[in-house]
């Protein structure tokens, strides 16, 4: 097993597990943290493909902007509806 394969397996597992956590997590903020982890893992995978520019733009746009916009969306909307459905 080469080092590249090892690093790739780690990053892919991180991306998959965090993507699963986005869906499965109870607390919606934890979903957002998992989403950011997923985006960063994808950026690292782009670096492994020698596409540094795409990786940097992935971090700049997705982690820097999209995740924060999603956070604003979560915090500015009502959460009682979801909490009543949970019980």
């Amino acid at each position: 097993m080469t080092w590249e394969l090892f690093v790739f397996m780690f990053l892919a597992a991180s991306a998959l597990v965090s993507a699963l956590m986005v869906v499965r997590s109870r607390e919606i903020m934890h979903s957002v943290v998992a989403l950011a982890t997923c985006f960063v893992s994808m950026a690292c995978l782009y670096v492994m493909l020698n596409a540094e520019f795409v990786a940097i733009v992935q971090i700049l746009v997705y982690v820097g902007a999209v995740v924060v916009v999603i956070l604003f969306g979560i915090m500015l909307t009502k959460r009682e509806i979801m909490e009543s459905e949970r019980r």
Binding site: E52, F53, I56, V63, G64
Partner: peptide, 19 residues
């Protein structure tokens, strides 16, 4: 490669952690 862009990408992560 693209060091300046990388610096600003790292700058842009902070709002997420602050929130």
């Amino acid at each position: 490669a693209a060091g300046v862009l990388f610096a600003f990408a790292a700058f842009a992560i902070a709002p997420f952690s602050i929130l």
